[in-house]
């Protein structure tokens, strides 16, 4: 199938600004699904609220557009009820790690088989450019007119510490890697986290004088380096991308099947 066959074109045009990185994530996600050979009925997309979360409406899968920060909680109920579904949860940085931070930690701890995509543009785009827990110290935002003093999370370290069994990071510049990583994440049995650095030229870019969308993508190229590269040793400011965690631990739905077996007397 062509990528456009996975789209609900009647709901276009989409709401994203020109140059927004989220369309790259959408494109990569659909190419991944196509490469993996899943049918549309095998995939559910559960999202929260924000620019990134509008992704669910545009794809011709089972789509659930929920509450700000709560997508993983809805997805947990859905997955437990229908374990055969491949459940993908695209979230923004504020959605996933500010208001939804607690659910993020606990989904990772349970190792429930969901694929969390954190589309990190370091800002709240839909409300007009406020700082998020991934903006970082020194950035400018409409709610940080004197400079942001809030230190940022490291999504990868956070996810790994909380127990996610597949953790990766890439950017909207590195689309080949993005498709590869998304493919591995969706097929991974357990909670997988993919952080995608995504550009918001409209708010984060303009406020922080980061230039155009192309400039911002060039920065993703220049400011990142593959995991474990020598470049990182020479320049610690570089952001590593690639797969950080890849391990096997009992998956939650499978573990629950064992609970049912025990409750029914081991039959």
């Amino acid at each position: 199938m062509a990528v456009r066959d996975y789209l609900r074109e009647r709901f276009f045009p989409h709401i994203w600004c020109p140059g927004c990185g989220h369309g790259v994530v959408l494109n990569s996600l659909l190419r991944t699904v196509e490469e993996l050979g899943f049918t549309k009925n095998q995939i559910a997309v559960v999202s929260g609220i924000g620019c990134s979360s509008r992704i669910s409406g545009y794809v011709d899968f089972h789509t659930l557009h929920t509450l700000h920060g709560r997508a993983l909680a809805f997805a947990t109920g859905l997955k437990l009820q229908k374990p055969d579904l491949r459940v993908i949860v695209p979230m923004g940085d504020g959605d996933a790690l500010a208001i939804g931070g607690n659910h993020f930690l606990h989904a990772a701890r349970r190792n429930i088989d969901l694929t969390a995509i954190v589309m990190n543009n370091r800002t709240y785009g839909m409300t007009g450019g406020q700082y998020s827990p991934l903006s970082g110290v020194g950035t400018a935002a409409t709610t940080a007119p004197y400079g942001n003093i809030d230190p940022g999370f490291d999504t990868v370290r956070l996810a790994a510490a909380a127990g996610a069994t597949f953790v990766a990071r890439t950017t909207t510049y590195h689309v080949q890697q993005l498709v590869k990583i998304l493919g591995e994440a969706i097929q991974h049995q357990g909670f997988s986290v993919v952080e995608v650095l995504s550009q918001c030229p409209t708010y984060f870019g303009r406020k922080n004088k980061a230039g155009s969308a192309v400039d911002m993508m060039r920065q993703f190229k220049d400011q990142t380096t593959p995991v474990g590269s020598e470049a990182k040793q020479g320049n610690p400011a570089l952001i590593e991308r690639g797969v950080f965690v890849r391990e096997q631990r009992p998956e939650y739905c499978a573990a629950y099947d064992e609970v049912v077996r025990r409750a029914q007397g081991g039959r």
Partner: peptide, 30 residues
Amino acid sequence: PQRGGKFIQMEDEISSMCAIIGASLAGGKA
């Protein structure tokens, strides 16, 4: 679990409510 049903203790009441909605939508009385 004795009846093959699903029980989960969530991290708070917010997520509990969200989880039952997700499960009900998928067909279970929740």
